[in-house]
């Protein structure tokens, strides 16, 4: 009884979010820009055709960097907009729990990102036409990209709940996501080395989206990588609930 109700509520929020996306220009602008950017980077910067390999390395390597800016742009409105319009007061006085609303919102935005990813399918058709790629690896790379998008999104939805300004939400989300991308690399490690204990450096370098994405992209579905992305998502959504609950009591 209660479970059907929970699912029903999540579904209702999910549906409302999606109609909201496609009711405004946001969805279409996002999809077009995403496809244009990914095409530009793959063909013009990575010179996809000149490399002469029937794989999608040139395509997937740009995903983290494009997500870095585009996913926070999708996520920034999720709570900030509710706050600005005052609809948050309606939403949180409906007979739904905070968790249901957060999940519904998150899944809707993630689903939308999934659609954008699927629309890159001509890339797959191209490599199939050009040669005989490893389809299993391509599938894994898509899965990794989707999970990474979800992790970016969970950061964005959390920062969106911090402020009523979408701009602030966007910038904070980009900075946090950038940290996650670079965590395993010299810009972040250099800051830490010298004063932080070794275990902390080790921990931070394990937090990088890039390393986890890279291992999935190679076609290796390691349970630890999946667990990593899901725990980032879970942690951020949980933080989101805490932020909202705190703002309510304030």
């Amino acid at each position: 009884m209660r479970t059907t109700k929970v699912l029903n509520n999540i579904k209702a929020v999910f549906k409302r979010e999606l109609t909201g996306y496609f009711g405004s220009a946001v969805a279409y602008v996002f999809i077009v820009i995403f496809l244009l950017l990914i095409g530009f980077f793959t063909f013009n910067i990575s010179n996809f055709f000149e490399v002469g390999q029937a794989d999608l390395r040139a395509f997937f390597q740009w995903h983290p960097w494009i997500f870095l800016f585009l996913v926070p742009a999708v996520a920034m409105r999720l709570w900030a907009e509710e706050r600005r319009l005052g609809t948050i007061e309606l939403l949180l006085t409906l007979p739904v729990t905070l968790g249901e609303v957060i999940l519904g919102k998150f899944l809707a935005a993630w689903f939308f990102l999934g659609i954008s990813l699927l629309l890159t399918f001509p890339m797959v058709l191209t490599v199939i036409y050009l040669g005989s790629p490893d389809l299993g690896a391509i599938f894994c790379a898509y899965l990794g990209s989707f999970l990474m998008a979800g992790a970016f999104l969970s950061v964005g939805i959390m920062t969106s709940s911090l402020t009523r300004s979408q701009v602030v939400s966007f910038i904070v989300a980009v900075v946090i996501c950038l940290f996650f991308i670079l965590a395993g690399f010299s810009p972040v490690i250099d800051v830490l080395s010298g004063w932080a204990p070794r275990w902390l450096i080790g921990l931070v370098s394990q937090l990088s989206f890039l390393t986890h994405f890279a291992s999935i992209e190679k076609g290796v579905l390691d349970f630890r990588d999946l667990l990593y992305f899901f725990s980032v998502i879970f942690f951020m959504l949980f933080a989101n609930a805490v932020v909202l609950e705190n703002r309510r009591t304030a």
């Binding site: 409302r16 909201g20 009711g23 005052g86 609809t87 007061e89 309606l90 006085t93």
Partner: peptide
Amino acid sequence: PENAPAYIDMSVYH
């Protein structure tokens, strides 16, 4: 609520 908030990018029916 005060000021009658509503989702501005949805149709009345939806």
